[in-house]
Amino acid sequence: LASDRDQPIYIESDSAERNEKDGITIYRGKVKMDQGTLRILADKVTIHSIDNQVTKIIAVGKPAHYQQKPSPEKETVIAKGNTIEYFIDQEKLHLINDASLKQEGSTMTGKRINYDIKASQVKASGGSRTSKQRIQMVIPPKPKGNAAN
């Protein structure tokens, strides 16, 4: 939800390391992070802060999971990637390596997917021409009833 970014971030993990000077906190081991309807599950989550304000979050996993409800009437967006970068100020998400994003029933996969949370817009890029990670988009057919309009 739009209000998610104004919510506190709650995070649980097996262990953690804080570096006050650099403003970096690294959470390791079955990491679960919640901020409003946004949830990230990963093996490792690094929280970057400037003047004690969180600016960027990087989640790493095999894969790392992300989900968030864009608005009350819309379905939850579900995404995965070996690395997920979440830029709080710009409300942007980068899904890197084995990336996939499911939104309003359609699913996109590729090497890298950039998702603008505010605008609910997706931009994907595939791997090199030879790699199997080309962009794929699956849009389910509309149920028979609405095929006419």
């Binding site: 970014r5 104004d6 919510q7 506190p8 971030i9 709650y10 995070i11 649980e12 993990s13 097996d14 262990s15 953690a16 390391e17 804080r18 570096n19 006050e20 000077k21 906190t25 959470y27 901020q35 929280i47 802060s49 004690n52 304000q53 969180v54 709080i88 100020d89």
Partner: peptide
């Protein structure tokens, strides 16, 4: 000396929003 702290188990964190 390095302002570095390792937390060893059952970590629960709350980070306030911007």
């Amino acid at each position: 000396q390095q302002d570095r702290i390792e937390l060893l188990s059952r970590v629960r964190g709350i980070h306030e929003p911007i």
